[in-house]
Design a protein around this nucleic acid. Sequence first.
RNA 1: GCGGGUGUAGCUCAGUCGGUUAGAGCGCCAGAUUGUGGAUCUGGAGGUCGUGGGUUCAAUUCCCAUCACUCGCCCCA
Length: 414
Amino acid sequence: MASLQPVRGTHDILPDEIRRHRHIAAAGLRVAEGYGYGEMATPIFEFSEVFSRTLGDSSDIVTKEMYSFEDRSGDAITLRPEGTAGIVRALISGGLSQHLPLKVFYQGPMFRYERPQKGRLRQFHQMGVELLGVAEPIGDIEVIAMAAQVLSELGILGATTLELNSIGDTESRTAYRKALVDYLSAYREKLSKDSLARLERNPLRILDSKDAADRKILEKAPLLSDYLNAESAEIFAAVCAGLDRLGVAYQLNPRLVRGLDYYCHAAFEFTSETLGAQGTVLAGGRYDSLVATMGGPDTPGTGWAAGIDRMALMLKDMPMEKRPVAVIPVSSSMEAEALRLSQELRHDGFAVDLGYRGNLSKRLKRANKLSAAAAVLLGEDEMAKGSVTLRDLDTGEQEVIALKNLQARLSAFH
RNA sequence: GCGGGUGUAGCUCAGUCGGUUAGAGCGCCAGAUUGUGGAUCUGGAGGUCGUGGGUUCAAUUCCCAUCACUCGCCCCA
């Protein structure tokens, strides 16, 4: 067992669980298409530069979490740690900026070299949307409303809270950063070690420190919202008003910041209490400077990403999969006919389980375990008259029915 | 990357103050039932006690290391 195990932080996704994943991704795509977004897939690896340039040097993702390697030609390659950078790279290298606004949905595995725990894996799955080329607040509103709808259709919106904040434009943020650093510098002695390091590197991050002493100090710290310039404040007010109009509930959280450097203005997170330390289910925000940072034409963007594995943990009721029909030869002489009939029914669109062996009793047991809706019993006596026995596995009632009427009768079970 | 906890059957877990054949429930397989499932009864298979090393006459049990999971931190979906 020790010698043959999956790489740390990865695991096999068995049929039961992958059904949840598909259900989630399908809901995401369905909702996104309703907003006019199309699915797009970018490679799961890129030149390392794509990520190191976009995520920002202060990000831990870049400094210690990237799955990077050199390929045979000596190129520095990184398994994607998130989805936005690849989409933006595609926008630039594929000339997609000719077709703005670009509205895309994506979904797939991401990789981060982190210490695994519940809801945090080294290979995990995200889905997300990006809206590029729309600077207006209506873009943020649309994207957030879409997120709420996805969660709602999955039945987990009620288990989450939407937290919302604005981190303003660069001017606002710079002013605030200075005020915050000035304030916190007075408490250098009392700050936690982590926060002290962040004071130099990424002071805004101190705002969501979980350290008790830090939190106490932060109670009287200046608020980001007080440092938004007029334009930033107006933009944020418009976003809030739009969400109000759509009935999307949110909670303002002045301490909400973003981990990645490229965000500005509206930042949001749907969080849940049920996931332990990894409370964030879906998160996003605006990133107006990202495309230009990567060398593309100045293009505003907004979007979000959601953790599929995390949502799967929250998903309680899975819709029943298509219940199969069991085709059962009563005696071995009927096996050939059972095979033929199964094939016919499958071509007609039924999910058919043809047990591979066993007597009638065994096969019925198996059908029961598969939660088959009905069993078609092929017995010699009925077959001689061109009939089969159809058994309703929920009620136990059965009837003899002519083969030619079977398909129509079976349809009633679905 | 840092700190704590846990690793015994497919799953959930007992147990061994170090001592002969390591247990239960669920699940699985078979029989009772060679043309009738869900219930019940009977029987069976399945374990290098995570891995490696140390101490010992003897280690699944004690010690160390390591790996994995888990809780928290960092960070993040």
